[in-house]
Design a protein around this nucleic acid. Sequence first.
DNA 1: CGAAAACTTGAAAATTCTCAAGGCGGGTGG
DNA 2: CCACCCGCCTTGAGAATTTTCAAGTTTTCG
Lengths: 258, 258
Amino acid sequence: MDTAVAISPVARSGWTPVPNPQFRRAPASVVPLAFPHPGRCGMPGFGSVQATMVERAGATHINVRKGAALFRAGERSTALYAIRLGSFKTQVVTDDGHEQVSGYHMTGDVIGSDGIGGSAHDCEAVALEDAEVYVLPFERIEALAREDIGFQRSLHRVLAGEIARERGVMVMLGTMRAEQRLASFLIDLARRYHERGYSGSEFVLRMTREEIGSHLGLTLETVSRLFSRFRDSGLIDVRGRVVKLLDRAALKRIILAG
Amino acid sequence: MDTAVAISPVARSGWTPVPNPQFRRAPASVVPLAFPHPGRCGMPGFGSVQATMVERAGATHINVRKGAALFRAGERSTALYAIRLGSFKTQVVTDDGHEQVSGYHMTGDVIGSDGIGGSAHDCEAVALEDAEVYVLPFERIEALAREDIGFQRSLHRVLAGEIARERGVMVMLGTMRAEQRLASFLIDLARRYHERGYSGSEFVLRMTREEIGSHLGLTLETVSRLFSRFRDSGLIDVRGRVVKLLDRAALKRIILAG
DNA sequence: CGAAAACTTGAAAATTCTCAAGGCGGGTGG
DNA sequence: CCACCCGCCTTGAGAATTTTCAAGTTTTCG
């Protein structure tokens, strides 16, 4: 389970390799509330489904440096990846070169499901901070799913979950205005941190305003203005990437009512 | 394969049952270019993956009337459905009662994949015209996937395809302006009709302006105005729901350049 | 410490929505 | 057969939202 593997995603992004230690730690945040250390129980944030998959698939793991791609669009995919530590963005690169962030993923999330069945990846996954992921090769996963009905069920639930997640983003983009989008983004992040045992009211964003905007279908300026507006209304406290939710009820009301 | 089954989705929508014949035909369109008759080869528009699944899963089939729901959000799901004839919209109903069309599906498409793995459906499928679907019960599908590596592969490809399709909608909503959205909608429809052996340049829309708008994240008025603008620019010919694409190259240019 | 990246804020422009009014078309009942 | 009705569509004008462009500030990182 802890067999670090020879694959080096570092090479893919032209990063200078670091001599001995596993990899450089991301600089300590002023307020290291979110994405902290590996977690006491060894597998922080893993839902039962993902935990089962990691355990049963006899996963190796690899390190991915901040800014490096775990996989790229067009690559033939060979595995699912369960995030053990760190966080990623997945993004689609459109024909005209534009990028759209399709999701943010943190400890315990499974990414790469778009490549199952032998198709190529149609998005790329980039680490937002130094990260470690379990590698679950499709061959192994598909073999297990054939042998074990429970594992098959888990796999299908992961895939259905990804479909549902994307559908949620679709509804956000299709029906909400800017304020609602940012509010729902913040509430979603809070929920996910909370689920992982971290503070759901105070966290550090791992992405830029531009990346947030890309995910929400807004420009970086609009995102920045909204953060300011929420701060001025007393809904949140924001200092750069450090966010504190002060009035979650009000944020939820914004999501519903506009 | 042709065992019509006793399930009556009619009951779900309060339609008056029709005595003997299978079901009432949708009124003949003035120009019946799209969604015509079952098709000479017996399985029009079915890609190899879907065809394999239908053949191997020993599918029964059921009829769904125009306006009736094949499944609803929240229902525990029990099967995948392969459309044999007709077309559907899938839509998400949000907490505040709003509806967002998440996709349009025609002959040969497989719908209901969000419910695989035992989760409940998080969207509903409504027939846009009288339709027939093959029913592929999850139990049967999952059993086959365990027995047959090729079938498993097909299943995974269908699921990955749904993830990719939704991601495409996400990018459309997140990065395109109204003109680009409608252009890409029309080009997409044209491609899909063409793939099924129908005219890719002349077809009848099965949905209202409001439904198109809901799918594209626009109001019905904006959709209507865009149709008019495209007509005035000589890109298309529109008469209500009958659409003829006159300059597809220009439409594609709009998608790319705005 | 200095350069580059990220962020904030303002003002004007562009896009899209909302509200409102009217037209078209097909199906139904008189 | 005709008139009416209802759902759907079109179009306009003004309002609201969001983007664009621009300038300046803060933060990050080597």
